[in-house]
Amino acid sequence: MLKRFIPLSLLILTVTACSNPAADYDAQEVVNSANEQWNAAFNDKDLDALTELYASQATLSPGDGNVLNGQQEIAALFQGFFENGLHNHNIATIATYSSAGQVSQLANWSADAEGENGETITFNGVLMTVLQQNEAGEWQVVSHIWNMAE
């Protein structure tokens, strides 16, 4: 079940957020901060903190042709990850791009789970995130897409 659940879940996430971009920001700092917050919330299994990184109108496609709508459905997906023992999530940025109040990153991701025989199974892939500032000046994910290597 875990092996089937992870690939379907780690594919596409799209989020809508309010746009009020500030002119002064360092794209790499924005990406680094977003990655630190996401990894910390996920690795601490802090479902509330993780969910709040997404806009209230977030949509997420787990790669199976379905779309999850809103923070509650997204939270249920991440809760499933936690229940299946996914942990030790890491993001390693490959490239950062910035334009018109948006910051994007191309990165590698990885996460571990315990296999049936107690061995550590590492899942990994490539992700792309697009961040945009909301009206409060906080950076939120507006698009998050990832895949999983086989």
Rank of each mutant, 00 (worst) to 15 (best):
M1A: 11
L2N: 09
L2I: 10
K3D: 04
K3N: 04
R4H: 08
F5L: 15
I6A: 06
I6G: 00
I6D: 00
P7G: 06
L8C: 12
S9K: 10
L10E: 14
L11D: 13
L13P: 04
L13W: 15
L13C: 15
V15R: 00
A17V: 08
A17R: 01
A17C: 09
C18R: 04
S19K: 03
N20T: 09
P21S: 06
P21N: 03
A23P: 02
A23I: 02
A23F: 02
D24L: 13
D24T: 14
Y25A: 12
Y25E: 14
Y25P: 13
D26G: 08
A27P: 05
A27D: 02
Q28Y: 05
E29Y: 04
S33M: 03
S33C: 04
S33Y: 06
A34T: 01
N35V: 01
Q37A: 13
W38R: 06
N39M: 15
A40D: 15
A41W: 00
A41Y: 01
A41N: 01
F42I: 02
N43S: 05
D44E: 15
K45D: 07
D46Y: 07
D46T: 10
D48V: 13
D48E: 14
L50R: 00
L50W: 01
L50H: 00
Y54S: 00
Y54E: 00
Y54T: 00
A55D: 09
Q57D: 08
A58T: 15
A58K: 03
S61R: 01
D64C: 10
G65T: 07
N66V: 13
V67P: 00
Q71M: 05
Q71N: 15
Q72S: 09
I74Y: 04
A75C: 05
A76T: 06
F78G: 00
Q79F: 00
G80Q: 00
F81M: 15
F81H: 14
E83Q: 15
N84L: 10
L86G: 01
H87M: 11
H87D: 12
H87E: 11
H89Y: 11
H89N: 03
A92Q: 09
A92G: 03
T93F: 04
T93K: 03
I94H: 04
I94F: 03
T96Q: 05
Y97L: 12
S98K: 12
S98Y: 06
S98R: 06
S99Y: 07
A100T: 08
A100M: 09
G101A: 10
G101R: 05
A107N: 09
N108L: 13
W109D: 05
A111I: 10
D112P: 14
A113H: 11
A113P: 12
E114C: 05
E114L: 14
E114Y: 03
E114R: 08
E116T: 14
N117L: 11
N117E: 13
G118K: 11
I121S: 06
I121K: 09
I121G: 10
T122I: 12
F123V: 14
F123L: 14
F123Q: 07
F123T: 08
N124M: 07
N124R: 13
G125I: 07
V126A: 05
V126Q: 12
V126D: 07
L127D: 12
T129G: 08
T129C: 07
Q132M: 08
Q133I: 08
A136V: 06
A136Q: 12
E138M: 07
E138L: 06
Q140L: 15
V141K: 04
S143Y: 04
S143D: 11
H144S: 07
H144V: 02
I145F: 02
W146L: 12
W146V: 10
N147C: 09
A149C: 06
A149R: 12
